[in-house]
């Protein structure tokens, strides 16, 4: 800092009105936090007392909080003068940073996977140092997983179709693109559900391979559910005509999120399904 500015007032040349959006007091942060402890307590109750009521209450509370909170945000975004350009940019920062943190969340699970993939001796002397572990039959990567890869890659293009339609002010095209994307997301989830229910290994007490397999693909599947929900909300917002050529960050955020989910899947497909497949044996 230069020396002539070495007083507090000396740095200020003047004042201009601020362009930011100062929000009204809101009850939703507190209900969100209460829902979070209900979910956490609920999981503990499920594990220790086989009681599902607290978890159910927590999930209902969390979903309701999200609903009313984001309803408020959408309402504010449609109130002229609140979401000026700088506020819109702030939301882009927020979403990008959130996705960055999500990436690090998956880094943890990939780390767990590679800890055993590259160093099978880390399974300990009770287990033969090979990956996938002995007695594990893995899922054929070129069956449902490859199909699901194609589904997600296709959905990446259809969400871009929706985006370009929006930029061309073609609402019908946008609704079509989004609708197809949502259907592809649901298709992926059906494929994943089939794979899980027909998997050759068990999650519960199945050992380390099913543990890393199910936690990585399972959290990915959960993110697909979230992304599909996010896109579905945008589908209905598009039907109501809430997006314009210039202002449609809600849609862009969903598209960013969807691409993130897509990229995570590509890593899962290559690293876990393909690299981690068992040696091909005669059928």
């Amino acid at each position: 800092m230069s020396s002539e500015a070495h007083t507090a007032e000396g740095q200020i040349a003047g004042h201009v009105p601020h362009p930011y959006h100062l929000v009204e007091p809101s009850f939703w942060p507190l209900t969100g936090a209460i829902s979070a402890i209900l979910i956490a307590t609920g999981i503990i109750f499920v594990a220790h007392y086989n009681d599902y009521w607290v978890l159910t209450a927590g999930v209902i509370g969390a979903v309701s909080t999200m609903f009313v909170w984001w309803r408020d945000v959408i309402h504010e975004s449609r109130t002229p003068g609140l979401h000026k350009l700088v506020t819109q940019i702030g939301m882009r920062y927020g979403m990008a940073l959130f996705i960055a943190s999500e990436v690090m969340f998956f880094v943890g699970f990939f780390w767990a996977y590679f800890n055993f993939f590259f160093y099978p001796t880390h399974m300990g002397y009770l287990h033969a140092p090979v990956w996938p572990p002995q007695h594990i039959t893995t899922i054929d990567p070129f069956a449902i997983p490859l199909f699901n890869t194609m589904v997600l890659l296709l959905s990446g293009t259809t969400v871009t179709w929706a985006h370009h339609a929006l930029l061309e002010n073609d609402r019908r095209g946008m609704i079509m693109g989004l609708g197809v994307t949502v259907l592809l997301g649901i298709t992926f989830l059906c494929g994943q559900g089939y794979e899980y229910t027909h998997s050759p290994f068990n999650f519960y007490h199945g050992g380390i391979f099913p543990s890393v397999f199910f936690i990585a693909t399972g959290f990915h599947g959960f993110h697909v559910i979230v992304g599909t929900t996010f896109l579905t909300v945008n589908f209905f917002r598009a039907i109501q005509g809430q997006f314009s050529v210039k202002r449609h960050f809600g849609f862009e955020a969903a598209a960013w999120y969807w691409h993130f989910v897509d990229v995570v899947w590509l890593f899962l497909f290559v690293c876990i399904y393909y690299f981690g497949r068992s040696a091909i044996t005669a059928a």
Binding site: I43, I44, A47, H48, S101, E102, V103, M104, F105, F106, V107, G108, F109, W111, A112, N115, F116, H122, M123, G124, L126, H127, P133, F203, Y204, H205, G206, G207, I208, F209, P210, S211, V212, F214, I215
Partner: peptide, 28 residues
């Protein structure tokens, strides 16, 4: 988020039958 992943795995090990960190199941 990396801590979140680690304690999620620990909670799963404790309650839901995984073995990320349990040598008996090949964990580390």
């Amino acid at each position: 988020p990396v801590l979140a992943g680690a304690i999620t795995m620990l909670i799963m090990d404790r309650n839901f039958g995984t073995s990320f960190f349990e040598p008996g199941g090949g964990g580390d």
